[in-house]
Lab assay of single mutants.
Amino acid sequence: LAALHAEGPLAGLPVTRSDARVLIFNEWEERKKSEPWLRLDMSDKAIFRRYPHLR
C-alpha cells in the first residue's frame, strides 16, 4: 500500500519516495501484461521525473 496526500494541491500523489516506488511498481506490473518489453525503473531520477514534488 502507498500513502497518498489526502487533500490540497498534492491530493492523490505519493507522500514519500517509497510510496512512489509502490505506485510505479503496481503500474508496471499491470502494463507488462500488454507491453512485456517494458523495463521497471524505480530510480530516484525516474521518481523525480514523475513526481517532482518529492525532490
Rank of each mutant, 00 (worst) to 15 (best):
Leu1Met: 13
Leu1Ile: 15
Leu1Thr: 12
Ala2Arg: 03
Ala2Glu: 03
Ala2Gly: 08
Ala2Leu: 10
Ala3Tyr: 14
Ala3Trp: 15
Ala3Phe: 13
Ala3Arg: 07
Leu4Gly: 05
Leu4Gln: 05
Leu4Met: 07
Leu4Lys: 06
His5Asp: 04
His5Trp: 11
His5Glu: 03
His5Ala: 05
His5Gly: 03
His5Thr: 06
Ala6Trp: 12
Ala6Arg: 13
Ala6Lys: 15
Ala6Leu: 14
Glu7Lys: 10
Glu7Asp: 14
Glu7Val: 15
Glu7Ala: 15
Glu7Leu: 14
Glu7Gly: 12
Glu7Thr: 12
Glu7Asn: 11
Glu7Met: 11
Glu7Trp: 11
Gly8Val: 06
Gly8Lys: 10
Gly8Asn: 05
Gly8Met: 05
Gly8Arg: 04
Gly8Tyr: 06
Pro9Glu: 11
Pro9Trp: 06
Pro9Ile: 08
Pro9Asp: 11
Pro9Tyr: 11
Leu10Thr: 05
Leu10Cys: 06
Leu10Phe: 15
Leu10Gly: 02
Leu10His: 11
Leu10Asn: 15
Ala11Gln: 15
Ala11Lys: 14
Ala11Leu: 11
Ala11Tyr: 09
Ala11Asp: 07
Ala11Glu: 10
Ala11Ser: 11
Ala11Arg: 14
Gly12Glu: 03
Gly12Leu: 07
Gly12Lys: 07
Gly12Ile: 04
Gly12Asp: 04
Gly12Trp: 05
Gly12Val: 05
Gly12Asn: 08
Gly12Arg: 03
Leu13Cys: 08
Leu13Ile: 04
Leu13His: 05
Leu13Ala: 04
Leu13Gly: 03
Leu13Ser: 04
Leu13Phe: 09
Leu13Trp: 04
Leu13Glu: 04
Pro14Cys: 00
Pro14Tyr: 01
Pro14Phe: 03
Pro14Leu: 01
Val15Glu: 05
Val15Met: 10
Val15Gln: 09
Val15Gly: 03
Val15Pro: 03
Val15Ser: 03
Thr16Met: 04
Thr16Ser: 14
Thr16Trp: 03
Thr16Leu: 03
Thr16Asn: 10
Arg17Thr: 15
Arg17Tyr: 14
Arg17Glu: 12
Arg17Ser: 13
Ser18Leu: 09
Ser18Ile: 15
Ser18Met: 12
Ser18Phe: 12
Asp19Arg: 02
Asp19Asn: 03
Asp19Ile: 03
Asp19Cys: 05
Asp19Pro: 02
Asp19Tyr: 04
Asp19Trp: 04
Asp19Gly: 07
Ala20His: 00
Ala20Asp: 01
Ala20Tyr: 01
Arg21Ala: 09
Arg21Gln: 11
Val22Asp: 03
Val22Lys: 14
Val22Ile: 13
Leu23Pro: 00
Leu23Gly: 01
Leu23Phe: 03
Leu23Tyr: 04
Leu23Val: 08
Ile24Val: 07
Ile24Cys: 07
Phe25Ala: 08
Phe25Cys: 11
Phe25Gly: 02
Phe25Lys: 08
Asn26Arg: 13
Asn26Met: 13
Asn26Gln: 13
Asn26Lys: 15
Asn26Val: 10
Asn26His: 14
Asn26Leu: 14
Glu27Met: 04
Glu27Ile: 05
Glu27Pro: 00
Trp28Phe: 12
Trp28Pro: 00
Trp28Ala: 01
Trp28Leu: 04
Trp28Gly: 01
Trp28Thr: 01
Trp28Arg: 01
Glu29Asn: 15
Glu29Ser: 15
Glu29His: 14
Glu29Trp: 15
Glu29Ala: 10
Glu29Ile: 13
Glu29Pro: 02
Glu29Asp: 08
Glu29Lys: 15
Glu30Val: 13
Glu30Arg: 12
Glu30Pro: 02
Glu30Tyr: 09
Glu30His: 12
Glu30Ser: 10
Arg31Tyr: 04
Arg31Pro: 00
Arg31Phe: 07
Arg31Ala: 09
Arg31Met: 08
Arg31Ser: 06
Arg31Gly: 08
Lys32Phe: 10
Lys32His: 14
Lys32Ile: 14
Lys32Ser: 14
Lys32Trp: 08
Lys32Leu: 11
Lys32Tyr: 08
Lys32Asp: 03
Lys33Gly: 07
Lys33Cys: 08
Lys33Thr: 11
Lys33Asn: 12
Lys33Met: 11
Lys33Ile: 13
Ser34Tyr: 13
Ser34Gly: 14
Ser34Glu: 10
Ser34His: 12
Ser34Trp: 12
Ser34Asn: 11
Glu35Val: 03
Glu35Gly: 04
Glu35Phe: 09
Glu35Asp: 09
Glu35Trp: 08
Pro36Lys: 08
Pro36Ser: 06
Pro36Thr: 06
Pro36Met: 03
Pro36Cys: 07
Trp37Gln: 11
Trp37Ser: 13
Trp37Lys: 05
Trp37Gly: 12
Trp37Pro: 03
Trp37Thr: 12
Leu38His: 08
Leu38Cys: 08
Leu38Val: 14
Leu38Thr: 12
Arg39Val: 15
Arg39Met: 12
Arg39Cys: 13
Arg39Asp: 06
Arg39Thr: 12
Leu40Met: 06
Leu40Ile: 08
Leu40Asn: 02
Leu40Cys: 08
Leu40Ser: 02
Leu40Asp: 01
Leu40Trp: 03
Leu40Lys: 02
Asp41Phe: 02
Asp41Gly: 02
Met42Ser: 04
Met42Asn: 07
Met42Leu: 13
Met42Asp: 10
Met42Gly: 03
Met42Lys: 04
Ser43Arg: 08
Ser43Ala: 05
Ser43Val: 02
Ser43Met: 02
Ser43Ile: 02
Ser43Tyr: 01
Ser43Leu: 03
Asp44Cys: 09
Asp44His: 08
Asp44Leu: 14
Asp44Ile: 15
Lys45Asn: 15
Lys45His: 13
Lys45Ala: 11
Lys45Leu: 13
Ala46His: 10
Ala46Ser: 15
Ala46Asp: 05
Ile47Pro: 00
Ile47Trp: 00
Ile47Tyr: 01
Ile47Cys: 00
Ile47Asp: 00
Phe48Thr: 07
Phe48Glu: 07
Phe48Ser: 12
Phe48Ala: 06
Phe48Trp: 09
Arg49Glu: 15
Arg49Ser: 14
Arg49Leu: 14
Arg49Pro: 02
Arg49Tyr: 13
Arg49Cys: 10
Arg49His: 13
Arg50Leu: 09
Arg50Gln: 09
Arg50Cys: 03
Arg50Met: 06
Arg50Ser: 05
Arg50Trp: 03
Arg50Lys: 11
Arg50Asp: 03
Tyr51Leu: 09
Tyr51Asp: 00
Tyr51Ile: 00
Tyr51Gly: 00
Tyr51Cys: 01
Tyr51Thr: 00
Tyr51Lys: 00
Pro52Asn: 02
Pro52Ala: 04
Pro52Gln: 04
Pro52Val: 03
Pro52Met: 02
Pro52Phe: 02
His53Cys: 01
His53Glu: 01
His53Asp: 02
His53Arg: 05
His53Tyr: 09
His53Asn: 02
Leu54Ile: 03
Leu54Arg: 00
Leu54Ala: 00
Leu54Phe: 05
Leu54His: 00
Leu54Ser: 00
Leu54Tyr: 00
Arg55Trp: 10
Arg55Pro: 06
Arg55Asn: 15
Arg55Glu: 09
Arg55Gly: 09
Arg55Val: 11
Arg55Ile: 15
Arg55Phe: 14
